[in-house]
């Protein structure tokens, strides 16, 4: 089990991580969801022993990353957000290098990376710097796995990767999870949150909620309306000034609207929009997704 107990970390005047406490079970696929600057990377770098927390304690399968960093580094596979393998080494050389550094061989743990590595093996003599984004990501994942880590720590692994590669990547993570590896992943993409066992919603260094994605959606009890209007900007302005408005925000081509009243009817909203001389297509009650939950949570706090 991984435990964070009241973790604080500041950089000069920025409070990057502000009192984080949570537990991650062994074998779990756990996601940190939050916008850029939420403090996800800082939290990861404290977990993998690169940063020392100002306050609080971390326990990683019973190890303290501050004191027992040598043991921690043996059991963690870390993939930083920025591609950070040697550009002038080939795919095979990079993998060989990291295997050697961890005192193991490619053959010993080939079964772990086989599915992933097979996809890039045809290009194994190509320098890593000349690979496409998706291939770089697969190579980085192979290198992070080559020493058979107990914990796989992935910092925004899908940022800058196309939609197909992203889906493939998450399928790979599911397979790795079945092999018993604990996976902690951070992402700014809300749609990926649904693929985790549990997620933590994080913003401004704080955790707002920790729960399975379905539970987070279920906790969302307020009626949520999707409004399709002709002029998004004007309607947004008008709805914000309405006394009953709890929150309204653009969501793709539509606006998502939350009311302060629990028993509000779509007709009331239509009436208001008409009274403001706004042309609308439809107003309908919808099921919230994880992104709505995240916005609602941060709105309450903010």
């Amino acid at each position: 089990m991984i435990e964070f107990k009241n973790i604080h970390k500041s950089f000069e005047d920025v409070h990057a991580v502000d009192g984080v406490s949570l537990n991650i079970e062994e074998g779990e696929l756990f996601g940190f969801i939050g916008p850029d600057g939420a403090g996800k990377t800082t939290l990861f770098r404290m977990l993998n022993s690169l940063l020392i927390p100002d306050e609080g304690e971390i326990s990683l399968f019973g190890l303290d990353p501050v004191k027992e960093y040598k043991k921690v580094r043996q059991i963690i596979g870390y993939m930083p957000g920025k591609f950070s393998l040697y550009y002038d080494l080939s795919i095979e050389e990079n993998l060989q290098f990291f295997a050697t550094v961890f005192g193991t061989t490619i053959e010993a743990n080939y079964h772990l990376i086989e599915d992933i590595y097979k996809q890039i093996e045809p290009f194994k003599n190509r320098p890593a710097g000349k690979l496409s984004g998706g291939m770089k990501q697969k190579l980085a994942l192979s290198c992070a796995l080559i020493h058979k880590p107990r914990l796989l720590l992935l910092d925004e692994p899908t940022t800058g990767v196309d939609a197909v590669s992203r889906r493939e990547f998450w399928e790979m993570l599911q397979k790795l999870k079945e092999k018993g590896i604990t996976i902690v992943v951070s992402t700014p993409y809300m749609d990926e949150a649904g693929l985790c066992d549990r997620v933590a919603l994080m913003q401004n260094g704080k955790i707002h909620a920790v729960a399975p994605p379905s539970e987070i959606v279920a906790q969302f009890s307020d009626p949520l309306y999707s409004i399709k209007v002709e002029n998004n900007y004007k309607s947004l302005q008008a709805l914000r000034q309405w006394e009953h408005c709890e929150n309204v925000y653009p969501f793709g081509e539509t606006l998502h609207y939350l009311d302060k009243r629990n028993d509000v009817d779509g007709k009331d909203i239509e009436a208001y929009l008409s009274s403001q001389q706004l042309v609308f297509d439809h107003v309908e009650l919808i099921q919230p997704d994880i992104e709505d939950c995240f916005i609602a949570l941060t709105h309450k706090v903010g």
């Binding site: 993998n48 022993s49 690169l50 040598k70 580094r73 043996q74 963690i76 870390y78 930083p80 920025k82 591609f83 950070s84 393998l85 040697y86 550009y87 990291f98 550094v101 961890f102 005192g103 290198c143």
Partner: peptide
């Protein structure tokens, strides 16, 4: 380029 970060988490 960040390779130092990757090296730092190795033993």
């Amino acid at each position: 380029i960040g390779t130092a970060e990757q090296i730092n988490v190795t033993p």
